[in-house]
Amino acid sequence: MLWSVLYKEFLELKSDKGAIARLALQSIVYGLFFPTVMYLQLVGVLPMEIGDVVLTEAEKVTIVKHSLETFGPLLLPFFVSVMASLLVIPSIVQETESRTLERLLSLPLSWRNILFGKFLFYFAISLACAYIIVSIYFLLSSAIVEAFQPPDLGTYLLVLVPAVSFYTVSAGLFVSARARSVRSANVLGGFLTVGLFLLVFFLSWFAGVEPGRDIIVTFSLVLFVVGAKLIYLTAKVNPEKLLT
């Protein structure tokens, strides 16, 4: 039954002409964004100095290298979350508004089948987008600066990226199942997902946090636990409340 929901979601994505291309393109742009800005600063197209400060070439390289190794990896979860939230937040509330959920529930599909089918589908798509973003980022960064030393790459790719996608998809579905309209889902969902990662980014930047292994693992663990709780709470929603 889970597969039929996955298949339905796939058909929906497929039927939206150009959606897959748009997703891939958007992911590529997010992956390119920060390394490109850094590169343009390094070659002098964009200014790096503030006020009267004059930087030597070596200092510029050091700043760019440090930014790509710490600042960028702190920013990437925000981009990953943007992609996932764009997809997942409308997914249930849209079906509630158009009443197609009613039709699905009249078939031999339970609310949990529908929810977990949607979760798996959006988690997979979000992960695919996330890996496009981070792969481009790390590949480009290592091409821009010599001896580029990203944070613990294994932990980053195998723990943090799935954790961010997991949390965003869970929180998106949680909000989507409770919202009365797509607009209100976007407002609250945006805050709980993209907004949260933006806040975390600024806080860690101001606090001078280095994305080391321990911090990545702890933060990811929190995201997994909260995400699991949110999806559990969503599964408990009485589907009758979703029938308008």
Partner: peptide
């Protein structure tokens, strides 16, 4: 209550899968 972006064939395929 149909998925507006689906083709008629895809609509039936989805029901058949369920």
């Amino acid at each position: 209550l149909l998925y507006e972006s689906f083709t008629l064939f895809d609509t039936l395929k989805m029901y058949a899968r369920v």
